[in-house]
């Protein structure tokens, strides 16, 4: 069985984003970029399934700028077998990404498609579910545990009230939550090996997918900033303030 893992290049999670003064977006010039943390978890999960002998091959795909090759190389260094970049400098919405992934799946024929539950730049949390809808496949979102059982997969999901377990027939779509695993590092030897793994580059036109955006961003602004308040000297003063607020 093959696994397809889409990965996105996003602002590094340690970087505090800055909104551009003209309100056109977030300033990404000279900002450290990395693989979306949830996608790293997705790659790790696929690699673990492969190490357990349950998956034969891992294909990673990114839809994005030429620089996303670095992200793909990082995924190859973690243990993916081959990579595909669908290169475009345009910002692409989840719906168009899902359509492109559907086309890629038609070629790769994966038994599992593992995605991050959201990208930490636009925080949409849509692509996996959309892809499942477009392909009419079952979905196990926000996964904290994935167990392959023959032609089914059992997925434990993080839901508002706790945990929920569902059983899906394969091919299936999984989106990862933070506690699914702890991604490994791309080790120096594996970075060297990754250099020799295949990385193919295509364009959206190769898949005939319409990537015209449906949403227009009119403005991007800073959220209202909270001002730091006061520091109290001790617990007594804290209690006095709580009382004044009517809390205690």
């Amino acid at each position: 069985m093959k696994a397809l893992v889409p990965v996105k290049r996003v602002i590094d999670y340690n970087v505090k984003p800055r909104v551009k003064a003209d309100g056109s977006g977030v300033d990404l010039a000279n900002v450290k970029m990395s693989m979306n943390p949830f996608d790293e978890i997705a790659v790790e999960e696929a690699v673990r399934l492969k190490e357990a002998g349950q998956i034969d091959e891992i294909v990673v795909v990114s839809i994005g700028p030429a620089k996303a090759q670095e992200t793909l190389r990082a995924a190859l260094a973690m243990g993916a077998d081959s990579a595909l970049l669908i290169e475009t400098e345009e910002a692409i919405e989840p719906l168009a990404v899902a359509k492109m992934l559907k086309a890629v799946s038609g070629e790769v024929e994966p038994g599992l498609i593992i995605l991050g539950k959201q990208a930490i730049d636009d925080d949409s949390n849509q692509t996996g579910q959309m892809l499942a809808g477009l392909m009419n496949l079952p979905q196990g979102t926000f996964a904290s545990k994935v167990e392959l059982e023959g032609d089914h997969v059992r997925v434990t999901r993080e839901v508002d009230g706790g945990l929920e377990t569902v059983r899906l027939s394969t091919p299936a779509i999984i989106t990862t939550d933070l506690r699914l695993n702890e991604p490994r590092y791309a080790s120096l030897p594996n970075i060297m090996k990754a250099k020799k793994k295949p990385l193919e580059i295509k364009t959206p036109a190769d898949y005939g997918v319409d990537i015209a955006p449906r949403l227009k961003t009119l403005n991007v602004s800073e959220p209202p900033v909270r001002q730091a308040g006061v520091k109290v000297a001790d617990v007594d003063e804290l209690i006095a303030r709580l009382k004044a607020m009517g809390v205690a």
């Binding site: 340690n14 670095e70 190389r73 990082a74 260094a77 590092y185 791309a186 080790s187 120096l188 970075i191 060297m192 990754a194 250099k195």
Partner: peptide
Amino acid sequence: PDEIRDFCEATRSIVN
């Protein structure tokens, strides 16, 4: 070179 940059990035994340 790309490969050395990848080494540095990987090392930076281990170091962090």
